[in-house]
């Protein structure tokens, strides 16, 4: 990006004046980058930036944590998980607390590492907590496929994988446009977004450098000013129109679409993925015969409203008091990608 373009982009977002434009970033990494680089401070007061539900840990419902705790403490399973999930409060306890009671919780970087661990520890039943969007789902699919091919029967997943399309639809009225998540789009391609454009849902795909985010914000403002339907790809070095056909094929071969519960947003139709019948031996809910669990999030927590842009973390009474990254009450404060944690870390006076 030339310095001329960068100046132009900065100019556009700082000097915009007109009706308030609501732009929602739906990727937790974008939320953090925007705070980290002070991009909010550059924005005209007529531009409102909303942090949407793009952090997988934040949208995973309390009941999922309860299921994981039950697997660890009552079913004696070894839990393999991304680190962010360990401190998310369940209805009664987090996995961190379960660990202090003797539960075996292994933090892994990849579900493939969990399969490897299962292979090397045949006496343990290993359950990987599969959360995430289109970006991380291929790795969960690969893990299940590899385990089946190699006959590793002491591995299964507790699934909460989600897809973004119907979430955009649900949030249509919360924002004028979205900053689309670059790495979700690397898998789906821009192709899927054509449909959204036809339905009046607009956005710009962006990467993660300050320049890329500034450029995408400026592009969004320009397009909204013009008042025409749009979708734009400002992250072409990674995102193509077609996306990743092999990842999409793998997801399709491994999962079926299903309804899914999102923290704060409720059940969104066809926004989740569950394992296909041929992989049902790798479904922890079936393997361990888990009962249906309804989670009870802390009543003080306003994560759900934060995730829809209905309030900011600072509107939550316990923000920074009862709820801090050291003692999180809700998932949005736990995850490094959550809006409450970003507001806390970077001050949030924006």
């Amino acid at each position: 990006m030339s310095s001329e373009t960068l100046d132009l982009a900065r100019d556009i977002i700082s000097n915009y004046s007109g009706r308030t434009l609501k732009i929602m970033e739906v990727c937790g990494t974008h939320t953090h980058q925007i705070f980290k680089y002070g991009i909010r401070k550059l924005l005209s007061s007529d531009i409102s930036l909303i942090s949407g539900p793009g952090c997988p840990v934040c949208v995973t419902p309390t009941g999922f944590i309860d299921e994981a705790v039950m697997l660890a403490l009552e079913k004696n399973a070894t839990i393999a998980t991304f680190g962010d999930l360990v401190r998310v409060p369940g209805s009664e306890q987090s996995l961190a607390l379960a660990r202090s009671k003797g539960a075996k919780i292994n933090i892994v970087y990849s579900p493939l590492d969990a399969v490897e661990y299962a292979k090397n520890n045949p006496d343990e039943e290993v359950v990987f907590l599969a959360v995430g969007f289109e970006t991380t789902t291929p790795s969960a699919a690969l893990a299940v496929k590899n385990a089946k091919e190699k006959g590793i029967s002491n591995f299964s997943i507790l699934g909460a994988n989600k897809t973004m399309m119907n979430a955009y639809r649900m949030l249509k009225d919360s924002a004028d446009a979205f900053l689309y998540p670059g790495h979700v789009c690397a898998i789906t391609g821009l192709k899927e977004y054509d449909e959204l454009k036809d339905e009046g849902i607009y956005g710009v795909v962006t990467g993660f450098t300050p320049k890329e985010i500034l450029g995408a914000l400026a592009m969004t403002v320009k397009k909204l000013e013009k008042g025409e339907a749009f979708e734009e790809n400002c992250y072409k070095r990674v995102v193509t129109y077609e996306g990743s056909p092999s990842a999409l094929k793998l997801i399709e071969e491994t999962f079926d679409s299903c309804d899914s519960e999102w923290r704060g947003l409720g059940i969104i139709k066809d926004s989740g993925l569950c394992l296909k019948k041929k992989y049902s031996d790798f479904d922890a809910r079936k393997k361990f015969n888990l009962p249906e669990i309804t989670g009870h999030p802390n009543p003080h927590c306003r994560c759900g409203e934060v995730l829809q842009g209905k309030c900011t973390p600072k509107d939550c009474k316990v923000f920074g008091k009862g709820c801090t990254p050291e003692h999180p009450i809700g998932a949005c404060m736990v995850s490094g990608e959550g809006a409450c944690s970003a507001f806390y870390k970077y001050g949030g006076d924006f």
Binding site: S139, G215, V238
Partner: peptide, 28 residues
């Protein structure tokens, strides 16, 4: 490549974001 959760999910085709210059040509 771009890696997520231990899997290379996409190739990175250039190391700069010059495509933005292209996009903004119309906006100047």
């Amino acid at each position: 490549v771009m890696v997520h959760a231990g899997v290379a999910i996409a190739k990175i085709t250039s190391d700069d974001d010059e495509e933005l210059d292209e996009l903004f040509k119309d906006e100047k």
